[in-house]
Write a protein that binds this DNA or RNA. Structure first.
Length: 92
DNA sequence: CCTCTGATTGTTGGA
DNA sequence: TCCAACAATCAGAGG
């Protein structure tokens, strides 16, 4: 099963203080591309843009993803911090 | 020890 | 407010 087949929707959180996980490079990529794709495809519904984003993302090379992965990495650290506090709260 | 699934992140746009 | 496809990412649990 691929990660893209389940994910019904944002399910509930099982943890009390569940620290929000780090964002994916795609999230950052979408942040920038959403504006570009939408600019090139005005009026297109999310269905079109959404798929376009995925295709564009796959088209990007590791070098292009660098800036996005970099953000993702930075956010990852952010998550670590949240987790640290989260664990502290639970493991207090 | 190693593997896997589940849950989560954010975007748009309409109902 | 919620959901849909898209991709990534991580943490916990199990064998």
């Amino acid at each position: 099963m691929s990660t893209t087949e389940k994910r019904k929707t944002t399910r509930k959180k099982k943890d009390p203080d569940a620290p929000k996980r780090s964002l994916s490079a795609y999230m950052f990529f979408a942040n920038e591309t959403r504006d570009i794709v939408r600019a090139e495809n005005p009026g297109v519904s999310f269905g079109q843009v959404g798929k376009l984003l995925g295709e564009r993302w796959k088209k990007l090379t590791a070098d292009e993803k660098v800036p996005y992965e970099t953000k993702a990495d930075a956010d990852k650290k952010r998550y670590e911090k949240e987790k640290a506090e989260y664990v502290k709260r639970n493991g207090n």
